[in-house]
Structure formats: structure tokens, C-alpha cells
Write a protein that binds this DNA or RNA. Sequence first.
DNA 1: ACTTTTTCCGTGTACGGTCACGGGTTTTTC
DNA 2: GAAAAACCCGTGACCGTACACGGAAAAAGT
Lengths: 352, 352
Amino acid sequence: MVGKDNRVTINDVAKMAGVSKGTVDRVLHDRGEVSPKSREKVLKVIEELGYKPNFYASILASQKKHRIVCVIPEYVSGDFWSLTARGVEESAETSSRFGVTVEVVTYDQYDVESFRHVCNRVLADLPSGVVVAPMFRVETLNFVKKLDASGVPYVYIDSKLEDDSYFAYFGMPMFQSGYLCADIMADGRSLEKILVVRIERDKMGYSDPTVARRTGFMEYMAAHCPDTQIVNVFIDPKSPEDIRRKLDEAFAGASGNIGVVMFNSRIHIVAEYIRERRFQGVRVVGFDALEKNLDAIRSGHVHVLIAQHSDRQAAAAVNALVDNLIHGEPVHKKDNYTQMDILNRFNCDYYM
Amino acid sequence: MVGKDNRVTINDVAKMAGVSKGTVDRVLHDRGEVSPKSREKVLKVIEELGYKPNFYASILASQKKHRIVCVIPEYVSGDFWSLTARGVEESAETSSRFGVTVEVVTYDQYDVESFRHVCNRVLADLPSGVVVAPMFRVETLNFVKKLDASGVPYVYIDSKLEDDSYFAYFGMPMFQSGYLCADIMADGRSLEKILVVRIERDKMGYSDPTVARRTGFMEYMAAHCPDTQIVNVFIDPKSPEDIRRKLDEAFAGASGNIGVVMFNSRIHIVAEYIRERRFQGVRVVGFDALEKNLDAIRSGHVHVLIAQHSDRQAAAAVNALVDNLIHGEPVHKKDNYTQMDILNRFNCDYYM
DNA sequence: ACTTTTTCCGTGTACGGTCACGGGTTTTTC
DNA sequence: GAAAAACCCGTGACCGTACACGGAAAAAGT
């Protein structure tokens, strides 16, 4: 049996304490203008009666408006960040009931300047809370420092930086996901070599969340499969043709079993290549449940995806802020690592 | 940008439609006593203005009390049904804010009579909604028929029966989970035989949710590994010693690779056996993320678990009812299949 | 002792709904 | 055609809390 009848109201408390509800309200919200004596009295009565403020009446009466801003990379339908955006959208719906508006602002993840610009815009019109997916280390640290100075709580999603005053973090354990990936790739089969397909980026203080993943992968391989050759294949993000040439090179002259992996969400471009070249027996493992990646699983060109619910992550991030802003609830846990989901062709259709 | 200022109130609607808020309220709740003409008008205005009732005002004003009852098998801490109970407990917390109390009643899943008894108790004092985990086919059908007749919505969790008037269903796709299980067990390795450990039960119109799982498993094996021998090992649930003898028999004289699988949540008893006998190289696959099973993964005696978030399932079931009772929201989807999570030693620690 | 200031507190309205009540209209009934 | 019934609909009192406002009491100033 759960859920008791919570019939004690602020009026009961007031009556018992021999004061008016106004006074009770003042002590409840620490709004001052109450004598120590009556304050004491009220507190005692609250304790005795086990008074819990009615949540709904409270929200209804206080017409406070909160605004939360989510700063994430630009996205187009179907890519990784669109999942996050969807999650935000979802929780925005619920939050709007609490009088909280949620706003998404995006930046070009390949252009620091655009990130700086966005940060300034946010700082110029301070919201009540911020959710940020950090891509540029220095700039983000600078940004959150200012937020912190203004008392605006911020939540990291996807990856976090080394500062310590963030309100919460929601994301995948990146190192472990790489480790897991390696196990899935290599365990029980003796691979001759593994191609690690990487997208070249401008340097520019860029903080790639996937490096930890790669590190985890490499550590597993070093420990368990020292004989497997690891080959980095760098692709130019601007010329999609590039991948064909580079992979042709990498595949040339390979005789034994080969694996291909990417540590970002774009394994589907590898799947596409494999499909074109009609290669058989190549083991392909990637990350994130984009629609294109799921299709690649279904068609058999990708064997396993390691996925996370980025949408839930984003929603959780927003909700944590809302809970804090509205109910004054502290975070349950500061660091929240989402589960790593292993998807193959037999369970991917049940992954929404 | 998300979440607009939803400042349209029932009074705005009333004014626009040229009626009183009472009338608007009546059409909102389909409470009758409204002429078709004004009803039409109000509906149109609601549409135009995009009016959404304020949830909190609504809850505050209507002091309705709802009661939801969850009928599930008895459980002890750490077993499968305790997960479900935990999920119920969680959602009960949120629901209590909505003036909904959630009650868990349990029955002995090996005793029809106890189930009948529980059903009668529920029927004697009808709640607003029911969540039920069906174990006895005929009795459950009988039970829900009466609920249906009284207009009490009911939700199936874990497994569902073949009737059609349930409000919603939340559970794992059992057949596919068996198929998936077989793939994980056998793909890429040539197993000589697989032991299917089963717990004998009294017959008694008992509806075992795991039979579909076994069917899925067998179909996969027949299609992909016709040479692997499948051996059923029946265990007496009452004598835990039994398993040792039976498994000893089954293992005796096996030379090649062996797999062991159970289709309920108790693979940990096999793990325990393997640990005792110090067997090496036996592939063990099971279901459900019980603490004991997770421990078995960590110690290496179970290789993979296929899990579902039964807690979320239960919570979702309760929430669906609450949403419907409080806000009159219809279910999004009637049949909700939860994802199948593949757990191994590298990702099981992030599965909460 | 009489202002002036500060401190403390009660009152009343608003928030956006719900629902009982009762009065006015129309339709039925005899 | 009047009485009864059925049908519609507006009114207003809540629900439990937040907060502005103004006044009483106490402290400080002169």
C-alpha cells in the first residue's frame, strides 16, 4: 500500500501555530519578516503535523517563469544530435506544464567562433538553467565559469569537462564503451587487422568526446589481442568520395579476417562502402542508433551497434534542472552514466 | 525554440465562445448537458486558441481520489518480481502527487487458488484501474472480463493473454527474446549440445510466459544449428539439490563445447553449479538482471544476460493508467514492447 | 513624550480549474 | 394549454498556495 492522504494544509499549520497562513508561508520560503519566536513555533508545528506543501497549488499560485537553454551542435534530421534534440523537445513538453520553457540553440561543432557567439547570446540574456554539450574545451570552461558566477546551474550532456561546479552530467561512459566495443569486435575471433575509420578535423582546441572511447578500445586490444593489427584510416569529412579510396587502400592485400570500426555515429558510411564493394565476412561495429545505422544492421552490413539513449539523456538533463528550479530538489546523482546498449539484428527493431 | 507561453485559460475560451466557463468545462469532460450548438462552438474555439487545460489547477480543483491495484506474483527481495514491485513503488510516488494511490497485491504463482482469492478481493472493492501480470490463463481471463464489465481499465504486464479489451500491454517480445538468446548462445561457435534447464511445475492451466521464449530459441536452433543437440534438463523447484544431480548427468560424457540456458530468471543457480564444479568453457546465457545474475556475470560464470527493464515496464503501466484516469489521455500505443538489453561483463555495471 | 523608523504579521486577491446548485427554456405529457 | 419533465447553462464557492498591501506594535531618534 502506497500513498497516504496528505490532508494537512498551510491553514492547519497556521491555526495550530496561532499565526496566519501568511506567516507560515514566510517561514516556508525563508522570506524573512518573521520573529524568531513565531518562526520557531511554526517550524515545530510543521514538524509535528508532517506538513508537506501541496505541490500543485504551489505551482498554480506562483506564476514563476523559468527558461532553460540547451546548447548543442547543429543537427539535421536523423543524425546524432537530432536524437538529443528530440529528447529535449520531449521534456520541453512536460516542462511547459511547470511553466518552464526550454530553448535549443545550436552551434557549428567545427567552428569555435560560432560557439563563442552562441555563448555570448546566452550570457546576454541569462536563463535559469543551461544544458550544454561541450565540444570546445577552453571556450566551454570559460562559458560555464561565467554561468557559475551568475549562479546559473548548468548540466553537461554527452561529455563533461574537468571543472567541478556543474550541476549534473548525463552521458555514456566513453572509455568503457570503447572497451566494450573491442570485446564485441574481437572476442572469440582472430582478426588479422582492424580498420579504425576516423574523420579528420581541424585541431583548434577541439575536444573530441570519442578519444576516450578510442583509448578504451586500444587498451582492450593491447591486453587481449596483441597480434591484431590496428590501422587508422583518416577520412576527409568534406569529400565523401575520399572514403572509397582510403578504404580500398586499406583493404588491399588483406587476406584474413578484417574488422572495421568507427567511434563516432557514422558507421553507416562504412556500411555503404561495404555494400558497394560487396565485401563478405568483414566485421563491422559502430556506435549510436541512428536510423541509417539501424538500416545497416538490418541489411547485415553492420553487425553490432553500441547505443545509448541520447534522447533520454537530454530529457533527464532538462528534468534535473526543472526539478531543481521548481521543487528545489537537489540532484540524485551528480554523474549519471547511461547504460550501453548492444544492438544486433535481432533486437534492434525493439529499440525505440 | 520550444515551449510557448500557454496562457490560454478556460475563461478565454468561454469568452470567445460566448458561453460560461461552466459550459466549457462540461464539454471538456464530456459531462453532457450542453447543446450541440454550443458544444460545437466551444470545440472550435479550443481548437483555434490551442487551449490546453492547466494540469495543476485541474488536479487542485478536482479532489478526486483514484486507486490503482497491481496484481503480481509474490516476491522476495532480489528476485524477478521484486523488480516489478520496485517499478510500481517508484511510479506510486509520483502518482500520489496526482491523488492516485497505488496498491500492490500478490499471489502465489504456483497456486491458482490464491490467485482466485486475490481477484475476488479486488473485485469486491473495485479500484479505478488494475495492472495484472497473468500467470493463470483461464482465471485471468475470467477476472479481466469482470473488470471490463465494470468499466475498470486493466493493463497487462510481463505477458498478455489473447483477449482484446485490455487497456495496454507492457512487456518483452518473448518469442524474439528466445531467438536473440539462441543467436547469442550459438552464433559463431559450434556447440555440441545445449542444456535447456527447466523448472518443473504443476500443470494446472498454468500459463508459462517463457514458452514463447523457448519456441523462439528452438526455431533459431533448428534453422541455424541443426547439428547442435538440445537437451532438456528438468529441475524440481522444491529440492535445490536436484539440480546438481541432473546437471551432473547431463554433463557426463560430453566432450565438445557445451552451452547452458534457462528461460526464466534463475540462471544464477546454474552459475552456482558451474562454480562448484569448476567447469571451464561452458557457455551460459540467461535472462533478467537480478542482482544474483549480475554477480554471476561479473564472476564469469554467466556470459550474457538478456534483460529488460521490468521496473520501467511496471512504472509505465501504472503511468499509462494514471494519465488516462487523471487527464483522460488515451494510450499512445496499446502494445508496448520493451527493448531487449544484452548484458555482458563490460556493460552490466552500467545497467541500473 | 512625540515622531519616525523598523519589524512583524494578518488580510485579501489571484492562480485556473471543478462541480453543485438553481434558474430559465424548451419539450412532453395529459 | 397548464403542469411536469427534460434540457441548458450561468453563478459562485471552493482547492491550497503565493504575495502585495497596509496596519499594529515595538524600537529608535529627537
